[in-house]
Design a protein around this nucleic acid. Sequence first.
DNA 1: GGTTGACTTCGAGTGCCCTCGAACTGGAAG
DNA 2: CTTCCAGTTCGAGGGCACTCGAAGTCAACC
Lengths: 129, 129
Amino acid sequence: MDISTRETSLTVGEAAERVGLTTYTLRWYEQEGLVAPVGRDSAGRRRYTESDVNWLFLLTRLRRTGMPVRDMRRYAELARQGDRTLGARRALFEAHRRRVLARMAELEEDLKVLDHKIDAYRRAEEELA
Amino acid sequence: MDISTRETSLTVGEAAERVGLTTYTLRWYEQEGLVAPVGRDSAGRRRYTESDVNWLFLLTRLRRTGMPVRDMRRYAELARQGDRTLGARRALFEAHRRRVLARMAELEEDLKVLDHKIDAYRRAEEELA
DNA sequence: GGTTGACTTCGAGTGCCCTCGAACTGGAAG
DNA sequence: CTTCCAGTTCGAGGGCACTCGAAGTCAACC
């Protein structure tokens, strides 16, 4: 393999490590249409480009914020249709952004419950001490 | 049924509505040991007390913050052992609190990615306009 | 006293997201 | 040239947290 290929493309294992997913998951994402078919070398092995890796990274953030795989697939389909879906993709992100904010607000509420509980335990422990 | 019972105890359906879970889930939680066996009326139907409902509410907050059912069970077991596990329960909550904080920090990072992406889409749309 | 509707138990089924085993292939190192 | 490792496909399996269907019971209302 030539130098330029070596410098810009990664095997499935390398890509997996970069983005923090397993090789199983990477292949599965591709199969599920979350990732466009990845290029192959002469032996039929996947070669991930920079932009493949960037895309995967974005997917991990979407996933981590609780976006279902189904929605990620919809997003991937939009992205594959090019510029004419820019608005739709932005809308998708804006809607998701609102969900993430709501989730964060929930967590803050829940944190309060946790803190109250911790406090109650602390006081109860002092009672018994 | 007498008035005091009517005022302080709820059927599984009522309890479910109060805490935002289904009747299925409430029974399943009990079966899984997340809830101590609930009192029954003369016909064998569950009657949830105030404190049952409070406990269930707490469980929903733990669940919502991502605590696995397995850990909730462990917590429930500790609670059933009385005062001598106060320290352990507090430690459990403190550890969980740290996880929630970490999760919130993650979400904030992810929100940044989302915002950058939204911005990029906005600019790309303007390019095309 | 019959109908309705919410309850009971039990085990099976569902949806989501991976995760893995099996059988095979091909390039690289010794 | 053999050994080894990382890759390939395919379909099956697994963990988690519910969710439901079936068959039955019981209290309440008309």
